[in-house]
Every structure is written in structure tokens, then in C-alpha cells.
Design a protein around this nucleic acid. Structure first.
Length: 314
DNA sequence: AATCGCGTCAACCGCCCGCTC
DNA sequence: AGAGCGGGCGGTTGACGCGAT
């Protein structure tokens, strides 16, 4: 038996939110801050359940949210992480700070799943050289082009008139938050993180996908899981992501011994990664509240996408 | 012009987890 | 220790819009 509903359903309004309701909710959050959702309906008089209020805020009204028009860069990150983490949309969203888990989930279900399927079926399953890194690199290049050139991007005219009014509310909130005290150290911490990531990426950039894979496998063999205490470094994580991308595209096609080794290596790494998942996400992605503040930081504004650097394959 | 089919996405539902008492 | 509660998450639904017929 599941837990009872979060609220008495009698007299609770459902369905799309009106601009008036949004304004009430935003005004309340301006005054009290997000949280304590249980008290929101009673305090505001909104005929909505607390969950509905929280969802509306986190998915639509929260300042800094980017909607629609996923870039190939973002698509790459989503495909990358979905293959690695599965349908952990919240975890994936933590790598795309301006996107909500709901948005990513929807985009995956309506666009990327199909696109990936189409791409995979376009790969020749009879190619005997399919397990070679050359083939995998080709696949990745092809997919990159495929993604970039695909005509399935969201049409700008799909934005509803109400969406723009939501945007206006967000802008109002941004102004409000700009007048709030600036974070004292978040920008520094984030830039330090970025610098570390860039260093690791610069190294990887000098390698082909092939040597990244073989280097990782070598280091993986040299450092068994028990020695590392089940934890993996940031560099290893980057390598896993690289390997995983190779794996993701060519998984069904791997038939040689080398591919089997690569595959096994990845599976072991992925299971190690799974253990360290929470830590890694926490390390590379600061808490959302910090990100939000950083987004609204004058110096940080407009650089949000740079927070998450993509692995060299993308 | 009317109808149908499909794609999109906002919102809901039910379960889970962690915190508090 | 365990019950209750709030919040978070992933899966699903259904309204809506648009193009095809």
C-alpha cells in the first residue's frame, strides 16, 4: 500500500496553471523562499496541492530555466549520461543546470530515443570491422553530424503565448534575486572546478578515441577496484564517459576480443562508478542553490553552459 | 472545411527516501 | 525502533496544436 495522497483531493484544482496562480505562487516564494510546500496552498489560498506548487516552481517558474531548443552539445550530454546512468533524469539534469529533469525526460522520450534508434539502424550491422576503434570513431563522428544536421529541432513557434508570460515572471524574479546578496565563494569554487576539468580535457584532447580507451583500460587493469577503494578519480570518470560513448554506439556491434575486453572494462567501471555516483555528482556539480546564485551572478551570467564541459568526443 | 492521426509537453500519480519526533 | 511526514523522482497521461488527407 502506498502512502496516502499529499493532500485532500476535494476542492483541489487540477490542470494547467493560470498566470494569476503563477503570480500568487511567485509572490509567496519571493516573500518566504522555496520550501515548506505543505504550507503554500493554505498560506496563499491557492486551490492546488503542495506537490503541484512545488512542481510548478521547480519546472517552470524558477529563475534561470532554459526551455526548448536543445543544442547538439546538450543532446550529447544527455545521450552520454542516459547510457551511463539510465533514466536518472534528476542526476542527468544536475549536469545541465538550466534544464529541468522533466524537460530532459520529455526531450529524451520524444526526440532523442527516436533519433538514436534511427541512427543505430542506419549503422550497417554486418560490418565485420565494427569493433575496431576506427569504426567506433567513425560512428561517433557520424552521430555528431547526424545530431547537428537533424531537422528534428524544436520549432521556435511552438512556444505558447503563456510560456512567454512565464518567462516574464522569471525575469521579474531574476531582478528580485539580483538585488539579493551575492554568493561569496560559489563563483570561485565553480571556476576552480572548471579549471580542473579543462586540464583533464586538454590531456584527453590530444588522444584519439582509440588511445583514450586503451589508456584507460591499461590504468584500469593496473589499478584494481579494491586498491582504489571503490572510488574513481575525475580523470577516470572522464575516461569512462569516453569509453561509454564508444560503447554506446557500437555496443550491439562488438564482436572481436578487443571489443569484449573494452566492454567488460566499461561494465566493471560503470559498476564502480555507480557506487561513487553520488560523490561524483556532488563533486562536479555544486548544489542547485549555488548554481542558481551563480547563474544570477553578474560575472557568471551567460557562462552557465561552460560549467559542464563535454568529453572530447563531443 | 472537417476529420484524423501524431507529436509534444505540462502536469499528475504513485512510490521511495530521509528526516524528525 | 518505527511511524509519520515532506520532498524528490520516474513513469504516465491527456490536452492541445499542427499537418495530412
Amino acid at each position: 500500500m502506498g502512502r496516502p495522497p499529499c493532500c485532500d483531493k476535494v476542492g483541489i484544482k487540477k490542470g494547467p496553471w493560470t498566470p494569476e496562480e503563477d503570480i500568487i505562487l511567485v509572490s509567496f516564494i519571493q516573500e518566504h523562499g522555496p520550501g515548506n510546500w505543505r504550507s503554500v496552498p493554505t498560506s496563499t489560498g491557492l486551490l492546488r496541492c503542495s506537490k503541484s506548487c512545488r512542481l510548478r516552481w521547480t519546472n517552470y517558474l524558477r529563475p534561470g530555466i532554459k526551455r526548448g531548443n536543445f543544442t547538439p552539445h546538450e543532446e550529447g550530454i544527455i545521450i552520454h549520461l542516459q547510457a551511463l546512468l539510465g533514466n536518472k533524469w534528476a542526476a542527468i539534469a544536475s549536469y545541465l543546470p538550466r534544464r529541468t529533469d522533466n524537460d530532459i525526460k520529455n526531450y529524451w522520450n520524444t526526440h532523442l530515443k527516436k533519433k538514436l534508434k534511427k541512427f543505430r539502424s542506419a549503422c550497417d550491422p554486418l560490418d565485420q570491422d565494427s569493433a575496431s576503434s576506427q569504426f567506433m570513431s567513425k560512428c561517433l563522428n557520424d552521430f555528431d553530424n547526424f545530431t547537428t544536421n537533424s531537422s528534428s529541432a524544436i520549432r521556435p513557434d511552438q512556444a505558447s503565448t503563456y510560456a512567454s508570460s512565464t518567462e516574464n515572471i522569471s525575469r521579474l524574479l531574476e531582478s528580485w534575486m539580483r538585488s539579493s546578496p551575492k554568493p561569496n565563494c560559489s563563483s570561485f569554487l565553480l571556476r576552480e572546478n572548471r579549471e580542473q576539468e579543462n586540464n583533464s580535457l586538454e590531456n584527453d584532447d590530444q588522444n584519439t578515441a582509440d588511445s583514450v580507451a586503451s589508456n584507460y583500460l591499461r590504468s584500469y587493469k593496473e589499478k584494481p577496484e579494491q586498491e582504489s577503494g571503490g572510488q574513481i578519480s575525475h580523470e577516470e570518470f572522464e575516461s569512462i564517459l569516453s569509453l561509454e560513448s564508444l560503447h554506446n554506439v557500437a555496443w550491439d556491434k562488438s564482436c572481436s576480443d578487443s571489443a569484449a575486453v573494452t566492454t567488460k572494462g566499461f561494465q566493471n567501471s560503470a559498476s564502480t562508478y555507480e557506487k561513487a555516483n553520488t560523490t561524483m555528482i556532488a563533486e562536479s556539480c555544486p548544489p542547485l542553490s549555488v548554481l542558481e546564485k551563480w547563474i544570477l551572478d553578474e560575472n557568471g551570467a551567460g557562462q552557465v553552459e561552460d560549467i559542464v564541459e563535454l568529453s572530447p568526443i563531443f
